[in-house]
Amino acid sequence: MNELIPLFEFQRVFVTPWTQDFSSSVWIVLMGFFVATACGLVGNYLILRRMALVGDAISHSILPGIAVAFLISGSRGSLPMFLGALVAGAVTTVLIEVIHKKSRVKQDAAIGIAFTSLFAVGVILISLFASKVDLDQECVLYGEIAFIPLEGMVEFAGLTLGPPSVVRMALVTLVVALLVGLFYKELLVSSFDPALAFSLGINSTFVHYALMAMLSVVVVSAFEAVGAILVIAMLILPGATATLLSHRFPVMLGLTVLHAALSAVLGLHLGVWLNCSLAAAMVVAGTGLFIAAAAVFGYQQTHAHEHSQNNNLRGRRGD
């Protein structure tokens, strides 16, 4: 057991990452922050729409999309990856709909069947063409965030911006944040009352598929860093924690970003201390934040929301 949990040395855990290893730590933390923010912003809407497990499904099923994109393009370029993921995401959504609508299998089972099948295809492709695909099974599960500093730097107009995956993730996060800001009211209204959205002239089906497309892009860009399954945690944890702390949607979005930042930093220290997967450590740190929020606020909120006026949002969805 002593071998398993290394001694807690303050110097090694808290100081060294920001002095000696600053250049690698900062990119890892930034990457973690961007991934958790982008995922968390999209995840808030998934939670609101009771689609948390659709996020689960899509994050698994983009794997064959990525693998096929690799095999066809032979490169790890962003465009083929995004396209592969979008196609796989669309296939998942359609498969779930078809199984659920065209037979008496219920939606939960349809989700379970669709994503496990696609994920299995992805794993098989990766293990059959392991030499051609620059991916392995472990990476699929928990990513390679620790290798980011080894990537080299992207330069733009004479400025050193950072490792390519961080730059890409930063762009994706920026786009997600912009979209969430621009279409704030459309997303909110169609998430919480599709009938009202229809009467306001908002096309809920379009919003649904746009959200799924956004989800696919976010998941695929997060994929390399945190793998297919930890992405689910990044999608759900920030939003779930924010739900416990506030009932006002703008505040929830802000808390999501805060949660993302805290779990990235705390996760780095936890991972350095325990010498384990940094991505998993970030999720564990985020879980810790959730538990803290639930312990302090969860119970009160349940009872407060029975009476609170501004909570008609959740009440309506509960019908």
Binding site: I47, A52, I229, T243, C276, A281, Y299, H305
Partner: peptide, 28 residues
Amino acid sequence: TTPLKEDTALGLVLASFFAVGICLVTMI
């Protein structure tokens, strides 16, 4: 005990337990 719905609760447990597991596996 929380206002979270079933799907969120399931996803949360799934992913956080799994993350703890991955931490332990990589440590082993």
